[in-house]
Nucleic acid binder design. Structure first.
Length: 258
DNA sequence: ATGGCAATGTTTCATTGA
């Protein structure tokens, strides 16, 4: 079983590439971020033809998340948002798929350390931690997937010195991510030996992708029971190539049957 | 030295992203 996450940066623009990727990678579950689509515009029929059921919550211009599930799997208990967090931004969707609790997240960017959006990001991550504590207690088999907008460590940053003082790498953000890890979740990417300088996002500007000047900010966190089933964790870097790519590449994990 | 690229709606610019 393959579960995955991809920030598509507009599903309207990226639908053809998403359909290509689904046919090639054949994931069982995909969490999408930045769909930027109101619900009545979600391409349900195209995805059904491709073999996927879609669950989604979106808005115009910004944010928007979805969970796509291959028709061979059952889906239960779809939920939206973070309980107790009043937030008009559509950033969280959850569902139980084949007995696995899937939580797709699009963590706020934060914009800059002196922006109002930065404390919002930190408060948001704190609320997510509280939600995950409850979800973990209820679902031993749990995965949190998506765009975390935090590079966990300096080895996840192409040039750590150049990023000092910026969002995505600041110590408070990393500490907020560490709270999730301390709750028992594992960054699946680090369960395995990985090539150095493996990233999931590259700026559109300044030839960042051909120069591999990127960050690893798209993560799949696994509960202990699910980490025990994980046989691989990878980033599909090729998806960042070619015409009209998203600035993010998909991240995937392979899970053996329980 | 703060450039540049992409997407969107408020559209021929401003805002946001990361």
């Amino acid at each position: 079983m393959i579960i995955s996450a991809w920030n598509v940066n507009s599903l309207n623009v990226r639908l053809p590439r998403l359909l290509d990727w689904l046919a090639t990678a054949r994931p069982d579950v995909v969490c999408l971020q930045e769909t930027k689509l109101e619900d009545h515009k979600f391409p349900v029929a195209d995805l059904a033809t491709a073999g996927y059921a879609a669950h989604y919550i979106g808005q115009k211009t910004y944010n928007g998340v979805a969970i796509l599930v291959r028709h061979t799997h059952d889906v239960r208990d779809v939920a939206f948002g973070i309980p107790g967090l009043e937030d008009p931004q559509k950033r969280v969707i959850a569902a139980t798929v084949a007995g696995i609790r899937i939580i797709g997240v699009y963590v706020p960017n934060g914009q800059a350390l002196d922006s109002d959006k930065y404390p919002y990001k930190l408060a948001w991550l704190k609320a997510l931690a509280a939600m995950l504590q409850v979800e973990l207690a209820a679902h031993p088999q749990l995965a949190v997937l998506g765009d975390f907008n935090v590079a966990p460590e300096d080895r996840d940053v192409h040039d750590p010195a150049a990023w000092v003082g910026q969002v995505l790498v600041s110590p408070p953000e990393r500490a907020a991510l560490q709270v999730l890890l301390d709750a028992g979740l594992t960054d699946s990417f680090r369960l395995f030996d990985q090539p150095p300088n493996t990233f999931s996002w590259w700026d559109y500007r300044m030839l960042a992708f051909p120069k591999n000047r990127g960050l690893r900010i798209d993560l799949i966190l696994l509960s202990p029971a699910l980490a025990a089933r994980c046989t691989g964790s990878r980033i599909d870097r090729n998806v960042r190539k070619g015409e009209k790519p998203s600035d993010h590449a998909p991240v995937l994990v392979d899970l053996r049957e329980p």
